[in-house]
């Protein structure tokens, strides 16, 4: 959720229109949650995402639920720390395995795995620049300034994991 919200907010700062839809139903009352983000130059026709260009799966149930929806040529980011066995995935998309929790632990905050993941997404997709994401982190953590620094680190370590270590990127 924080990942999507930051992305949508920062996109506006870069002059795009954006929309963000959270799940607010039974998922929020226990289970896995999801959100959809649309970023467009012009008016956003439908904020509903049925065929994403980019899918980020933080855990197994989410991966199973959405893996087949990714558009041909799109990108699937898998949190390999929490998703041990990866199911069959269609062959016409790019798959990126990010050990987000391990990387987050490295900087001392396992809860920052979402920002690690977002960093990795930005390294591959350039949806928004890393700088804009860093500058707008306070939008998400306005009530918790004490966690800003660690989340900045998380974004950077996630970004570098794909920028500098292409070995982890398996393009199928």
């Amino acid at each position: 959720m924080a990942m999507g919200m930051l992305l949508a907010h920062a996109a506006i700062k870069e002059g795009f229109n954006s929309s963000f839809i959270p799940s607010y139903g039974p998922e929020m009352r226990g289970g896995t949650a999801n959100c959809s983000v649309v970023i467009e130059k012009g008016f956003i026709a439908s904020p509903i995402v049925t065929e994403p260009d980019v899918l980020v799966a933080m855990n197994s149930p989410s991966l199973l639920k959405f893996k087949d929806t990714v558009k041909k040529g799109g990108h699937l980011f898998i949190n390999s720390s929490l998703i041990a066995s990866i199911p069959t995935i269609k062959s016409d998309i790019h798959i990126h395995k990010i050990p987000a929790n391990e990387l987050a632990l490295k900087i001392g905050e396992s809860r920052a795995s979402n920002m690690v993941m977002l960093g990795a997404v930005l390294a591959v997709t350039n949806l928004i620049s890393l700088e804009t994401a860093l500058l707008n982190l306070n939008y998400i953590f306005k009530n918790k300034p004490e966690v800003l620094a660690v989340n900045e680190k998380a974004l950077k370590i996630g970004f570098q994991s794909l920028k500098e270590n292409k070995v982890k990127t398996a393009v199928i």
Binding site: A8, I12, S18, I21
Partner: peptide, 10 residues
Amino acid sequence: DGLLGQMMES
């Protein structure tokens, strides 16, 4: 509707 109420947009 619930979608408009819950979604965030510019």
